[in-house]
Every structure is written in C-alpha cells, then in structure tokens.
Design a protein around this nucleic acid. Sequence first.
DNA 1: AACATTAATCGTAATATTGCGATACATATG
DNA 2: CATATGTATCGCAATATTACGATTAATGTT
Lengths: 109, 109
Amino acid sequence: MGATKTELFTRQQNELAAMAKAIAHPARIAILQYLVKKNACVCGDIVEELGLAQATTSQHLKELKNAGIIQGNIDGVSVCYCIEPKAWKQYKELFTAFFKDVDLKGSCC
Amino acid sequence: MGATKTELFTRQQNELAAMAKAIAHPARIAILQYLVKKNACVCGDIVEELGLAQATTSQHLKELKNAGIIQGNIDGVSVCYCIEPKAWKQYKELFTAFFKDVDLKGSCC
DNA sequence: AACATTAATCGTAATATTGCGATACATATG
DNA sequence: CATATGTATCGCAATATTACGATTAATGTT
C-alpha cells in the first residue's frame, strides 16, 4: 500500500489529478507565474528567483517538464524555459470544465 | 528537509498550491464529480462508488472537508456530503485567474 | 438493553515528495 | 587543452501521502 490505486479510476480522473499534482507546490506555481509574467524564454535566473537550492529547483523544473506544461531549450551553457502554449491551453480548458457552473443553490441539506 | 518551504513563497502561491493538492488525487476528483453529478446531498454511498476501503475513503473525504470544498452533515447514522458552493466558486475563480489568457504566441525561443 | 449500521480515528506499512550537498556533464572561453 | 559556468543527476534524510485492518463512537432498531 501507499501507492495510488489508479486502476480504480477513469483515465480522465487520473489525468486531471496528475495535472493538479503538477501545480500542487508553491515553487511550481511560482515558476509558472514567473514564466507567464516574463512572457518569454527565461534563461538562467529561475534559481535566484525561487530561493531554493539549485538541485531542488532543477527537480521542480523537471516535474513541470514531465507534466508537459513547460519547455526547456538549451542555449549554450544555460537552458531557457518557457510555457508550452498548447499544454497551458489544455490545462486551462480541463480545469475550467471541471469547475464549470453547476446549479449549486440548495444542493445541501 | 522533506517539508515544503512555504516561507519562501507568497500566501497566494501557497494557497493555490494547497487547493491544487486537494484535487491532486483521482479519488478526490471522483468524489467531487460524483457530488456535482448528483447535485445533492449524498448520504452513505460514496464508499461503494469509489471502490477504496472505508477508512481510505473517509480519509479522502476529510481532506476535502479540510480544504473547505465539501461539507458533511450528520443525518442519523449516516453522513451526507455535498459541495460547498462558496468554496467551489472560489476554486473556480482562482484556477481561472491562474490560467487566464496570456499572449503565449511566440514566447518560446 | 442488546444489536446493527455507518462513519471516524488509530496504528502501521508502503510509497512518494521535498530538499540539499556532492558530483557529473555539457558547453563556453581563455 | 584547461578552466569556468550553468544545469542535471545521484544519493540520502526528513517528511508527507496513500491505503487498509482494527477499533471506537454515535445513532438507529428490535
């Protein structure tokens, strides 16, 4: 035990959960907000921006890359990161769909 | 080490991360979808619906309650759960704001 | 009161995440 | 080629999460 029983759930549920997990850490939220704010390829200064150790930052960047939501391009010695527009759009759409309006008035006892 | 360094991030970043964490498990997604689908107070049949052990299901329900997104009302022997409309609306708004449109065309190198 | 039913909590095991120092690796630059 | 720079990976420790059986607690039924 200890591992999530993914086989009990639909692919859609597992995917949305995985997407939520990707942004379920303040450092990863901060990275994404920084990239969005810059609205450009950001080369090199994410470690100083975050305040976490270089190794830790690299790990968070890796998770965001694995989730597909950011992209890293090698530029000489450094690596430039930016939002992956298609994935960003998909995240936006799926979360919006999940939280779509429901008639919640008086649904509780 | 091992614990998130929340002091490095803004309150907003920590809160959004916590909200994402609340839905970062397929069982919790499934519970929320079920409650939304029923659009009513659901009494008692969440355990059978999920397929996880009763103790595990109860734990996930507790997390959703702690996150404020669901509500549990005692009704005799059983407990009735429903979406907490205000929190649901806030989740919707904050996630929407986070994923708001940005000019992402050509932002990458 | 005795028993049944339902949910929460406890205790524990397995696994995952977070964080960092040390090291390896890749590409510039002198 | 030697060295500097920026990033990824390794190995480890601390903490958190997931899952479940067993137990407890609370209410309803006979």
